[in-house]
Design a protein around this nucleic acid. Structure first.
Lengths: 211, 211
DNA sequence: ACAAAAAAGTTGCAAATGCAACTTACTGAA
DNA sequence: TTCAGTAAGTTGCATTTGCAACTTTTTTGT
């Protein structure tokens, strides 16, 4: 459980103490199940200990939309789903899942025992949410480009910067890249070909070099 | 100070107590200033009491990019700016600004006095961040549409749903709408004209009706 | 090693879009 | 009331893009 971001910086001994302090419950769900985010009407925080799940929304025309993919260490709960619009959000298991549940109120509440880990946990949750915001902003920045070409170049530049090198391998397939950029795959490959011919990049499959 | 979301649900009496408990400081800045997010190396939370500011990023080619507009009641701070990539984010005053600063550590720390308002404040911050995520997701959903037409229709449908009516007035100018959709303004107006001619909408200026 | 499936790559064509250069309609201050 | 500035609306044209229908290459399971 140590590689779970929400528990970063919390020592093993403390973790146990904390879990009992928070009335944490360990539950198992089969693939296809919806993961609940409340118990007795009270909002809860869930941590995926193992398995894969999706945060999905059902569109106004019933179309299912995956907003986020969750795997080991990821956190979910009412607080992440929110609020106005009250869209049909749900967490759906894609495989069988092990989940650790905590009471949301307990987590954010002032702790009568003044446990040290308490503020660490809150800090971690804030960091997780901030990282989520960052990720969405990055995505938005790429999409803010008006042409396919500049979308690609923006994405490539960001990835190169992250990799610390002009050469890098995409973290997913080219088809997935097209989905991420929300463009037609063949149009994207055509544009990559153009970039290649103009010697702005060289690429083969998922491996790309800026030149 | 009562209409400030971060202080929602905290009573006046408590607020004063809290501000001293958090060692809150009131500062004024002139237009054009950068708002700091640390003091003596310690991260701080800022609340805009009055004035306007922007969260800006400086691109790799030095281009200035406004990520978010902040006005009365909005919160800023390291935790919202984050992390990896360590982009050149800054908060820049657009007008003179009144800012209330709090020590981040104090805010998230277990409170020795076990103050009631403490958990309320943390809850509010989490809600603010969740709302931010929601807003970004919504934006992303609109941009995920591949054509200008469907971008418009998606945005209009969402706005209508929010307004609870097929008739609504845009919360900003048409030029701003084009910016929000990241499309050319004239191309957008042309498409709106098409939609009008096909009787899918009727519109005049910022007032739109779905039909 | 082979077949089958998945991913990558290609291309023609019609339609959508950005861009530029306008005109027309509002709105607010002197 | 008029003038100036801003927002809305229009249009032609070159370019970009989505879409569909492929081929080629790579990966995977047996």
């Amino acid at each position: 459980m140590e590689n779970v971001k929400i528990f970063d910086g919390i020592k093993d001994g403390e973790l146990e103490k904390m879990l009992s302090c928070f009335d944490a419950k360990h539950k198992k769900f089969a693939s296809g199940n919806n993961l609940p985010t409340r118990r007795y009407g009270e909002p809860r925080l869930g941590v995926i200990l193992s398995g894969e799940a999706d945060l999905v929304r059902y569109d106004y025309d019933g179309y299912r939309n995956i907003l986020e993919h969750l795997s080991q260490g990821d956190v979910f709960g009412e607080i992440f789903m929110q609020i106005e619009g009250a869209d049909e959000l749900a967490i759906v298991c894609e495989t069988k899942c092990d989940v650790l549940y905590m009471d949301y109120k307990n987590v954010i509440k002032r702790c009568e025992n003044a446990c040290e880990f308490h503020s660490t946990l809150v800090d971690n949750i804030l960091k997780i949410m901030a990282a989520k915001v960052q990720k969405l902003r990055t995505h938005l920045e790429v999409l803010s480009q008006r042409t396919l070409r500049t979308k690609l170049l923006t994405y490539f530049n960001m990835t190169a910067k992250q990799a610390g090198s002009n050469s890098f391998t995409l973290p997913f397939s080219l088809a997935d890249l097209a989905d991420y950029l929300y463009v037609d795959r063949s149009a994207m490959l055509r544009e990559m070909k153009n970039l290649r011919e103009e010697n702005l990049i060289s690429s083969r499959g998922k491996h790309i070099t800026l030149t």
